[in-house]
Design a protein around this nucleic acid. Structure first.
Lengths: 131, 131
DNA sequence: CAGCATCCTCCGCGATACTG
DNA sequence: CAGTATCGCGGAGGATGCTG
């Protein structure tokens, strides 16, 4: 893989000590890319195989699914099990850490369900006003 | 899939109905960029002026702060008050919606504080094994 | 089936300069 | 002070092709 490690642990000059933004930003950076959270949620339901995930998400490219899973694995959120059979079979599941994280995301999920389209509506209103 | 506009409301072909991923992804897309959450957290403490935010975050570019605030405003999370004085003064504060959202993020913040560096450690372990 | 490698495009974002 | 306008690069990520 490319050596472009821009590991977020550096925690730059943001002076927001009170909010301890560093940890949080790392976390967000991990979850906030286009697919990670989706994958974590699916794995929260049950173990999935590679292709299952691929089909469940459907418009994810194979490359991005691989990358996403590798990153999640690397960060200790997802566990990867290779079954030495032919054809190959690989299972992905949440680690305890991953499950805990998913729990922490729960309220956010709930919130988004409770406020369906509120952001979208505000957006539409704003746009209309501008137009 | 048509790239079209970046408006998330289209909620494409992701078949993850159970997780209602669309809303959530919209939400994440809004929060997950480099600065939004940081801004929302600061505004959660109190109202800030433009330059206050700029100094609090410090390594945000002026352009990105403007863009971030505009997007948050557009999405109904932040309210912008222009005081017609010289020199100009603009205050930013959370809307009720924004405050509610911040609450929903709370557990995530707490979690990240409770697991300091756990992800970073897993990452280091993983990298060592690979190397 | 579950990947890795390569190429290429698009746009996020920083740097810089100008304004009411 | 609080923006807007323009330029340019770097990296995220899609498409495609090859492998064990």
């Amino acid at each position: 893989m490319s050596p472009g490690h821009s590991e977020g642990t550096d925690c730059p000059s943001t002076k927001v000590e009170e909010t301890q933004a560093c940890e949080l930003r790392d976390l967000l950076d991990r979850l906030a890319d286009k697919w990670s959270l989706l994958v974590v949620e699916l794995l929260g339901e049950r173990t999935h195989r590679f292709t299952e995930l691929r089909r469940a998400i459907d418009d994810i490219s194979q490359r991005m699914l691989t990358l996403t899973l590798r990153r999640l694995e690397r960060d200790g959120l997802v566990h990867r099990t290779v079954h030495p059979v032919v054809p190959p079979r690989v299972d992905y599941e949440l680690t305890p850490l991953g499950a805990a994280l998913l729990d922490a995301v729960g309220p956010l999920v709930t919130w988004s369900r409770r406020h369906p389209g509120e952001i979208a509506r505000a957006r539409a209103a704003y746009d209309e006003q501008v137009a």
